[in-house]
Computed example of a mutant assay.
Amino acid sequence: MVAAAHRISRGSDFDRTLKSGVRVTTRDLVIHVLPLNTSPPADPDERPAMVATVGGPWLGLIVSKAVGNAVTRHRVARRLRAAFARVHDQFSVPETMMVIRARPSTAQLGSAELSEQITAALSRRRIREAFDERLSTSHSPRVRS
Results as ranks from 00 to 15, higher is better:
Ala3Tyr: 05
Ala5His: 08
His6Ser: 09
Arg7Ser: 05
Ile8Trp: 02
Asp15Tyr: 08
Gly21Phe: 07
Arg23Lys: 14
Val24Phe: 10
Asp28Met: 02
Val33Ser: 00
Pro35Asn: 05
Leu36His: 13
Leu36Asp: 13
Thr38Gln: 13
Thr38Gly: 09
Pro41Asn: 08
Glu46Pro: 06
Arg47Tyr: 10
Arg47Asp: 05
Ala49Phe: 13
Ala49Pro: 07
Ala52Gly: 12
Val54Ile: 14
Trp58Met: 09
Leu59Phe: 00
Gly60Trp: 08
Leu61Glu: 06
Leu61Asp: 05
Ile62Met: 10
Lys65Glu: 11
Ala66Tyr: 00
Ala70His: 04
Ala70Thr: 06
Val71Glu: 01
Arg73Asp: 05
Arg73Tyr: 03
Val76Glu: 02
Val76Tyr: 02
Arg79Pro: 06
Ala82Thr: 10
Ala83Lys: 03
Ala85Trp: 08
Arg86Lys: 12
Arg86Asp: 14
Val87Asn: 04
His88Asn: 08
Gln90Leu: 15
Gln90Ser: 13
Ser92Asp: 15
Val93Lys: 02
Val93Asn: 05
Pro94Phe: 07
Val99Asn: 09
Val99Asp: 02
Arg101Tyr: 15
Thr106Met: 12
Thr106Gln: 02
Ser111Pro: 14
Ala112Tyr: 11
Ala112Gln: 13
Ala112Phe: 12
Ser115His: 03
Ile118Trp: 03
Thr119Met: 09
Ala121Cys: 09
Leu122Asp: 00
Ser123Met: 13
Arg124Gln: 11
Arg124Ser: 10
Arg125Ser: 15
Arg128Ser: 11
Phe131Tyr: 03
Phe131Glu: 01
Thr137Glu: 15
Thr137Met: 09
Ser138Val: 06
His139Asp: 12
Arg142Asn: 10
Ser145Ala: 13
